[in-house]
């Protein structure tokens, strides 16, 4: 009898190892979206998460507000100085926007890579495992969210939608370590320099921007935004600031360390950007932009 017991245990052990390997293989496979049973479980779990997270959020926000009341005076002073400049800025922006629309009309090119529709969402959960930076938001397919859409806060890009279910979606933050998580980006200066945001330096807590041409003149403090060329993200979302520039191992390209503009912690409200323009770039006038990028590389 004991012999039989150990045999049974061995079979259970081996069986579970096989299933474990199969499941892990299944989940790390490169796939567009999750399967419907997964979606169903996510919706049900997300519903419960919503019920628990929302009231806790409200309480936390209340205490935050109370804390903020203390330095209202100083903040007010600071904001007032900003306000003086704002009026001028605002009129400039409207004028430029109008110009832009008119010029686009002249060129018969009304869509822009920079156009997007924002969808507001609230963060309801964060992966407590902390190996992989994933957050769950309370908007899903029913609000038109699709995988690969850009997710940002008021201060900048934070990640992209990894998968969606009916009422929730999972967002992969830029800080998670994933070789497939690449964002086409550009460094703003007189001549834009293109590159790829690829990977995150855990110790320095900065994003790595690779494939910058070796002759590109990049200075510390220049802004990095999305380029819109990846075919997924809209153009012009702020990613961060260049902090350091290092040549790569072969000396053909450079890598910049970029300090992210948005914090990846304490996320509460985020925006998902639905890009209005088509996802792929088959049009001829758009192809020009791809060529520019290739020249840059």
């Amino acid at each position: 009898m004991p012999q039989f017991l150990t045999n049974k245990r061995l079979i259970i052990l081996l069986g579970s190892i096989i299933i474990l390997v199969a499941l892990i293989g299944f989940s790390i496979r490169d796939r567009e979206n999750i399967t419907w049973p997964e979606k169903f479980v996510k919706d049900v779990t997300g519903f419960g998460q919503n019920i628990i997270s929302k009231p806790v959020s409200a309480i936390e926000e209340f205490f935050d507000n109370v804390g903020r009341l203390r330095n209202t005076y100083e903040e007010n002073e600071k904001l007032r100085t900003h306000l003086d400049k704002l009026a001028q800025l605002e009129s400039d922006v409207t004028r430029l926007e109008k110009d832009n629309v008119e010029l686009r009309k002249l060129l018969e090119k009304e869509d822009s890579l920079a156009d997007y529709e924002p969808v507001q969402a609230t963060v309801i959960a964060r992966n407590p495992d902390r190996w992989y930076d994933l957050i769950t938001i309370d908007q899903g397919e029913s609000n038109g969210i699709e995988p690969d859409m850009a997710v940002m806060t008021a201060s900048g890009l934070i990640g992209k939608v990894k998968n969606t279910s009916k009422f929730t979606s999972t967002v992969q933050l830029l800080s998670s370590n994933d070789a497939q998580n690449r964002v086409s980006a550009l460094i703003q200066s007189d001549k834009s320099n293109y590159g790829l945001i690829e990977g995150y330096d855990d110790e320095k807590r900065m994003l790595k921007m690779t494939k910058i041409p070796s002759d590109a003149k990049v200075e510390k403090g220049q802004f990095v935004t999305t380029s819109g060329l990846g075919g997924v993200f809209p153009k012009g979302l702020v990613i961060g600031k260049v902090m350091e520039l290092v040549p790569d191992e072969f000396g053909l390209t450079q890598t910049a360390l970029v300090e992210p503009a948005a914090s990846f912690y304490d996320l509460e409200h985020v925006m998902v950007s639905k890009r209005t323009m088509t996802k792929v770039l088959p049009e001829e006038d758009n192809r020009q932009q791809v060529l520019i990028e290739e020249e840059g590389l």
Binding site: S16, L20, F26, V41, K42, T45, K162
Partner: peptide, 16 residues
Amino acid sequence: FLFDLFYTELLGAYLF
């Protein structure tokens, strides 16, 4: 199983 599906997205780890 719920943990794997909803949070970590690495099926099997918490489950086993």
